[in-house]
Design a protein around this nucleic acid. Sequence first.
DNA 1: GTCGGCAAAATTGTCAACAATAATGGCGCA
DNA 2: TGCGCCATTATTGTTGACAATTTTGCCGAC
Lengths: 238, 238
Amino acid sequence: MEPTVDANANASENAVRPAGAAGFVLDGIREAILSGEFVPNQRLVEADLSEQFVASRAAVRTALLQLAHEGLVERVQNRGARVRAVSLAEAIEICEVRMVLEGLCAAKAAERITAAEGVELDGIGAAMCAAVSAGDVLGYSRLNERLHRRVREIGAQRTAATVLERLRAQSVRHQFRLAMQPGRPTESLPEHLAIIAAIRANDPRAAELAVHAHLRSVIHALAGAEEHTGAANGRDSS
Amino acid sequence: MEPTVDANANASENAVRPAGAAGFVLDGIREAILSGEFVPNQRLVEADLSEQFVASRAAVRTALLQLAHEGLVERVQNRGARVRAVSLAEAIEICEVRMVLEGLCAAKAAERITAAEGVELDGIGAAMCAAVSAGDVLGYSRLNERLHRRVREIGAQRTAATVLERLRAQSVRHQFRLAMQPGRPTESLPEHLAIIAAIRANDPRAAELAVHAHLRSVIHALAGAEEHTGAANGRDSS
DNA sequence: GTCGGCAAAATTGTCAACAATAATGGCGCA
DNA sequence: TGCGCCATTATTGTTGACAATTTTGCCGAC
């Protein structure tokens, strides 16, 4: 139950939330997974969940279906669902996709950014510097998430944004592991500032390259930190 | 009921197919949408579908849920589902995402391609030339689909491949419209050959650029052909 | 003649019970 | 004692009926 990175941060912007009984269960389970309350490979029994939350089994079933499509849960025919454990290799794949997709969004953001949005990005950049100086790892992690999200929004590429949001949720654990790595913020800070600068300068190409460089660095750190931290939760049986 | 491009071509490789009753309905509805039997914005009433196919309403419901996640149908709370009509703007967005994602796959394919796979790509290229010479538009369209799919597979980037497969299904109609445009094959043929050559030469960067160039051309053609053909089916009320 | 509201119909959302399938444990047999 | 088979249990898949919601058609009032 460690990754408390942001857990509910996405609940506000996330895609589909069929209000009512079913929607409540969906958000509940998703938050439990994202917060680490439900650990990877943990079995998700429909009956148990319908008791834990109060809803009917059908509601739980619908929620699990949705979560499977979001890539947070894996289901096998007649064998039930369990929390998806994304391996290191998968995490790297996800980052590769993020690299090109966020690059696209950043390029479009550089073309479309308004003055007000520019000021906002600068604000995030300044706050990031402050967080790193103060050694506020958790605050920096939150700002990191916020920056990436704002770039997506400014880019206004809904197709890419939807995919990216889903991928982000899938790799929350790896993202957290990375944030905890000592010296990591110091390394990523200048990369983030470069992204902001390029977008502010209305330079699509530079923005794209800056994002690429940043995520290449993330991939490198991800692969390197494999054995240092405890578990790169992969395909271990529960 | 015009786009007969490939319809069932994907049924074989497509992601999740919960076998049994539910799976049959899913494939049935998907194929009906892809083949154009169900037109954009057409309402999909659960009761009607459960009669048309034989399954229960719950099976239909599950299938519609799945298709919504695949982006082929749109659902609104208490208002039912209808075939998604992807507008021209959305189609262009999709192509932009395809551009960077297929670029990534092609780059990885250039690094991983085997001799046998190289021969296979060359075969596709030769067949494409033949099809264009013979004026076989439909055959060329099929080869086009096959080339893109093989590049994805050789790239071995499952995360990207999954997203691409979903996006391809969403834009089948626009893809078809484009294929029917006179002179289009002649324009895209050299682009395809360039992609094959770059991958065969084990040149990731060149492969990525070739794919980018190709899809930029697709986007251009898509935007240009807007008013020529009959309907760029957008947000028209049923 | 048209607009607002009300009732009926159509359609989806929800639920609880039943059937089918896979996992578990025990028993006999070698 | 170890292995394979069968009954039991746990869990998911499916079905049908009921409730809630939205849409449609109708009627009267202005």
